[in-house]
């Protein structure tokens, strides 16, 4: 079977980590062609070609694909669809925008955020904010799915697939990009960081969040936040970890002042090691933590940051 994997591309840059993880899911289904669509993507296409297990890279270089607008990208993917049994993409905000559109244009049902490939037609996916896992079997001719990257290992490099340039599929001009406001940061990206330090409502204020950031910087970690902390204005929304934010699975997840609401757990429970620091020893976060420290975070955090 032939699989078309839509690479995560932001402008001209390949989202190597999420694409490599989705590639692992795609390889279980058949021969993988990677589509790299963006503006000025020669480098991104060459990078995608290095992943082991990629048969071919299709590079679509056009201004229409430079800002992730759904309509022109969906038209491009639909034009390529007849050659493939499966069309997959990592479940990034860009792919979640475009893949259901692709599925509807093909008259098939999209399968969102798969966490396991059972066979060519059957997939596992979380429902109810991760409180249940559903196994679904698709009867559609083409399977269109997004892959929850946190549950798949990244495919290694070491390949050298051929890169083929393909033409653009046109742009009907339904939408236009105005601007991106991306938080500039030297920290690792939240969804691919090895260590994540997250703060919750217990942190108490935006100023106090600096303590979380200090610990994160000491560890070379990304900074996360619970929805309660985001809603209280302590942290920006793109730091949010949980069902309504990002799903992460780092080697080490340190939850500080986070009670452990179900919606937060859904976003981090696949982490390898979880540390919880909370003054309430009954907090649900301790039920999933490998190491729990009951204590006042305002005393614990400075000590931890200093001694590491």
């Amino acid at each position: 079977m032939a699989v078309l994997l839509i690479a995560e591309v932001t402008g001209a840059t390949l989202g190597a980590d999420s694409t490599a993880k989705a590639l692992t899911a795609a390889k279980a289904l058949g021969d993988v062609t990677v589509l790299v669509a963006g503006a000025g993507v020669d480098g991104a296409a060459a990078e995608a070609a290095q992943f082991a297990g990629v048969s071919k890279v299709l590079a679509a270089d056009d201004a229409a694909y430079g800002n992730g607008l759904a309509e022109p990208l969906a038209d491009l993917i639909v034009g390529l669809a007849p050659g493939y049994s499966h069309i997959l993409a990592p479940a990034t905000s860009a792919a979640k925008n475009v893949m259901p559109r692709v599925a509807a244009l093909l008259d098939v049902m999209v399968i969102s955020e798969i966490t396991a490939v059972v066979d060519a037609d059957t997939f596992e996916r979380p429902i109810y904010a991760g409180n249940a896992v559903q196994t679904v079997k698709s009867a559609d001719a083409t399977k269109v799915a997004t892959v929850r990257t946190a549950t798949f290992e990244a495919a290694a490099k070491g390949g050298s697939a051929p890169v083929e340039k393909i033409g653009a599929a046109g742009d009907k001009g339904l939408s236009a990009w105005v601007e991106d406001k991306v938080a500039a940061s030297d920290r690792p990206e939240l969804t691919s960081a090895k260590i994540v330090v997250s703060g919750g409502r217990g942190v108490g204020s935006e100023e106090n969040f600096a303590m979380i950031e200090k610990l994160a910087d000491k560890l070379g970690a990304a900074v996360g936040a619970s929805r309660a902390a985001v809603d209280s204005g302590y942290a920006p929304n793109d730091w949010q970890v949980g069902q309504t934010g990002k799903v992460v699975a780092p080697q080490l997840y340190i939850a500080v002042g986070i009670s452990g609401a179900i919606q937060h757990l859904a976003g981090m429970k696949d982490s390898k090691v979880i540390v919880a620091i909370n003054k309430d020893e009954e907090a649900p976060i301790f039920q999933v933590a490998d190491y729990g420290l009951v204590g006042d975070l305002f005393a614990v955090l400075p000590e931890l940051t200093e001694k590491l």
């Binding site: 896992v133 979880i274 729990g292 009951v294």
Partner: peptide, 24 residues
């Protein structure tokens, strides 16, 4: 429906670990 639900299961649980007494 185009998707048949084969089964619905509880998510894999995580066991609570240990409480530690100090930062050290």
């Amino acid at each position: 429906p185009r998707l048949t639900v084969v089964k619905t299961a509880e998510p894999a649980g995580r066991k609570a670990g240990v409480k530690v007494g100090s930062v050290d």
